[in-house]
Design a protein around this nucleic acid. Structure first.
Ligand SMILES: [Mn+2]
Ligand SMILES: [Mn+2]
Ligand SMILES: [Zn+2]
Ligand SMILES: [Zn+2]
Lengths: 143, 143
DNA sequence: TTGGGGGTTAGAATCATTCTAATTATCACT
DNA sequence: AGTGATAATTAGAATGATTCTAACCCCCAA
């Protein structure tokens, strides 16, 4: 007989990844991830904190930092940095670059064709083994 | 009659760029730039401070930060960031990417062929105007 | 000479993030 | 269900790179 869950069934991907890493599912982690999925505008930890607090007023900023770090470790979320600005968080798992619009401050995802990623890695001398490539643009968009 | 200089003649590029920006040449700015040119290992501001202090013990960390910022504004030096680490400074003016070696902590320059830069910019939708592209690698080198 | 305007300096302030220590929740096993 | 072990959360202090502030210095032009 199925056990009766006391909360709505948690989103599949998160719980699978947490279990794979030997970590527990918690309401805080669920909510942080949910907030990232709902509005994919590359929020900072502070912005995530504000959004999450409206639904869970007792959550702490430390937990938001911890939870975001956990999601990054589980490969469910990417941490995105522009120069020295605060880290932003992105739940888009497709290979993509980031475009930082100076005018609006917005960050946009730019899908990366696999062939381009290969071209870029191909400029490395053979003794360089790249685990990751980051491509980012700075500029502005019309309209 | 030529005026007698009390110091060695300053490196051409720096003084030209400073003058173009309406800024003055100073021993501090000269030395900071010189230190960057002498050892191109992408030092942090603190590392520049240490190197510069051995030749000018009275210089302050604030001046190092100010001077580095000035050199960046003059387009003589690039500020380089990896995740949330301290900013590093690079006097290589050729278009190039950065490879961060996780093992050694070293940062290496990777020259970028103009054609690759075009390829990368070509993935942007037409309404995106990119003023700058940054490419960085994380990994390790053999030997 | 003198005055104005950078430039430099030491130290305080800022701000994102991490750490600490105490509390609370969850899990596995009775 | 009860219990202990372990993980997670929390508030607040600490950290560390960078920026700001305010006083001082130096150069040049009048
Ligand atoms: Mn911006
Ligand atoms: Mn490293
Ligand atoms: Zn993204
Ligand atoms: Zn470089």
């Amino acid at each position: 007989m199925a056990s009766s869950p006391r909360t709505a069934p948690p989103s599949g991907a998160l719980n699978r990844r947490l279990a794979d890493s030997g970590l527990r599912s918690t309401p805080q982690r669920e909510l942080i991830y949910d907030v990232l999925l709902r509005k994919r505008d590359h929020p900072t930890a502070d912005e995530v904190f504000v959004r999450v607090k409206t639904e869970m007023p007792t959550i702490s900023l430390a937990t938001v930092y911890n939870g975001l770090e956990t999601l990054v470790q589980c490969d469910l979320v990417r941490a995105v940095n522009f120069e020295r600005g605060p880290t932003r968080y992105c739940p888009n798992l497709r290979p993509h670059a980031h475009f930082h619009d100076e005018r609006s401050g917005a960050t946009h995802d730019i899908d990366l064709p696999p062939a381009l990623i290969e071209h870029v890695k191909a400029i490395l001398p053979p003794e360089y083994r790249a685990e990751a490539v980051e491509i980012s643009f700075r500029g502005s968009t019309s309209r």
